[in-house]
């Protein structure tokens, strides 16, 4: 895929660790994923509501979830997790493509949706990406998922492609300085 990126970088992202209170008054900690988180993430995705899957992920069986997480949690990827009362409730991943850019995706457990956790998680992950010297981030989102499109636009993503079922959106980060 040849992704177009906006010329103007978006700034103002803070990396992990961060803490915030969500719209429901829950204390959420956002931090980088460590190898100790793998089992808890598997559990989060096993519990994930199938209707909230996006383009085939997360996979539906535990075996497939583990295989998928192997890719997502690989060394060259960036992962940020939102933790409430000791367990992960949201997860942002940035996985490198073959062109030096990173694909972003986010999943938030159903009970934690609609409380601005997604926005905070994505912003924190972008802060981490900027800290790591990443400049180009893209994602795809299903056309009919207007809440997600609005969320990404608010963060600063721009629509860069809609040749297919999915919309493509991308964002440029400022070089870290």
């Amino acid at each position: 895929m040849t992704t177009q990126f906006p010329d103007e970088p978006v700034t103002g992202f803070s990396g992990p660790p961060r803490e915030f209170t969500d719209a429901e008054g829950r204390e959420i900690t956002v931090r980088e994923v460590t190898s100790n988180d793998t089992e808890a993430l598997v559990q989060m995705y096993v519990e994930f509501d199938p209707t909230d899957r996006a383009q085939g992920i997360p996979p539906s069986t535990e075996t497939a979830i583990r295989k998928w997480l192997d890719v997502v949690l690989s060394e060259d990827a960036l992962n940020v997790v939102g933790v409430h009362e000791g367990r992960p409730v949201g997860h942002v991943m940035l996985v490198p493509d073959r062109h030096g850019a990173y694909e972003l995706a986010i999943f938030v457990l159903q009970a934690y949706q609609g409380a601005h956790i997604g926005t905070e998680l994505v912003r924190t992950a972008l802060g981490l990406a900027q800290r790591e010297g990443i400049e180009c981030v893209w994602l795809t989102v299903e056309r009919w998922n207007t809440p997600a499109v609005a969320l990404y636009q608010k963060i600063g993503f721009e629509r860069t492609g809609d040749a297919s079922f999915e919309l493509e959106m991308s964002l440029r980060l400022a070089p870290d300085g």
Partner: peptide, 14 residues
């Protein structure tokens, strides 16, 4: 499959 595993249907397929 995208880098992080999303299924992507290209415009021909659609």
């Amino acid at each position: 499959r995208s880098p992080l595993g999303k299924i992507q249907l290209d415009s021909v397929l659609e």
